[in-house]
């Protein structure tokens, strides 16, 4: 008996939603907002401080403050807040919220009783340690994810990859990342076209074994095509003057406003960590 399998539809949806998100992100990076105007190198440095702050803070109240700053920055950068909240809460924070539920109870986190729930004569105790630990965990995840998304939607992706040079990462890595980024879109287009062709010929009602063969065939065909594409790409690189030493064009410009921004973030970083350590 054949079971209905949605793997074709799901693969198409994930490829399309990826491309849609990229289009939205590209649109936001082109806007004339606050973060879009900051030199990408200093922006990456300042966001690195935000990530470090988020991971070091031990008080949920300060993480909420950091989250407020993130939303404020999103607003000043002309990001649609509804879209931003949807983009950041789905999927990782909602997933974290669900998996942390058992940790609320004293079975997983023993401690002082905060609430007692009676469900079907079973007594479930939510511990103080479990509740506050879960709150801190979810806040930390949402703050980190929000800053990561904010960085990626306010910086042109290619510029973001080029900033790796300031961290001393070899140019061959930076070049590989840049090339990989381009290939991802090409490959996704190939995957999308292949699945659309399969869907139009055989539909989506396939048993799972047949489906697995189709997926494996697609992956192997993609690798076969890509491998041979590599040689053509190398030919194109040579014709454009590639001499085995990758050169990354550096067109970044730093203004005094960028340094002022970094100064503000450093001060914020020091103060918030000082408060966190002193009050706890």
């Amino acid at each position: 008996m054949k079971k209905k399998s949605n793997f074709i539809r799901r693969s198409l949806i994930s490829a399309l939603s990826f491309l849609k998100d990229s289009v939205f992100a590209e649109e936001y990076t082109s806007r004339n907002g606050f973060l879009q105007g900051i030199d990408p190198r200093l922006k990456v440095a300042s966001f690195a401080l935000f990530f470090i702050t988020a991971i070091f803070l031990k008080r949920a109240e300060l993480l909420i403050l950091l989250y407020g700053l993130c939303l404020l920055l999103a607003l000043f950068s002309k990001i649609n807040l509804g879209w931003f909240l949807k983009r950041t809460w789905l999927f990782i924070p909602v997933f974290s919220l669900l998996i942390v539920i058992p940790a609320l109870f004293d079975i997983f986190t023993p401690g002082e009783t905060l609430f007692t729930l009676n469900i079907l004569r079973a007594k479930l105790v939510i511990s103080r340690q479990g509740f506050f630990g879960a709150r801190l965990f979810v806040m930390r995840v949402i703050v980190s994810v929000s800053f990561a998304v904010l960085l990626s939607i306010t910086t042109k992706h290619f510029a973001l990859l080029k900033t790796f040079r300031i961290f001393g990462i070899p140019q061959v890595f930076v070049m590989t990342m840049g090339m990989c980024y381009r290939y991802i879109y090409l490959f996704l287009k190939v995957v999308e076209d292949t699945y659309l062709a399969i869907k139009s010929r055989v539909g989506t009602r396939l048993d799972y074994k047949k489906g697995q063969h189709i997926v494996a065939w697609n992956i192997s065909a993609l690798w076969n095509r890509s491998y041979h594409l590599g040689e053509d790409v190398y030919g194109a690189m040579l014709s454009r003057g590639y001499t085995a030493e990758p050169v990354i064009l550096d067109d970044f410009k730093t203004k005094s406003r960028d340094w002022l921004w970094l100064f503000f973030v450093v001060i914020f970083f020091v103060i918030i960590l000082y408060i966190d350590r002193r009050v706890l």
Partner: peptide
């Protein structure tokens, strides 16, 4: 891209 292939 491999991670985007949904396998039934």
């Amino acid at each position: 891209v491999i991670m985007m292939f949904n396998v039934p």
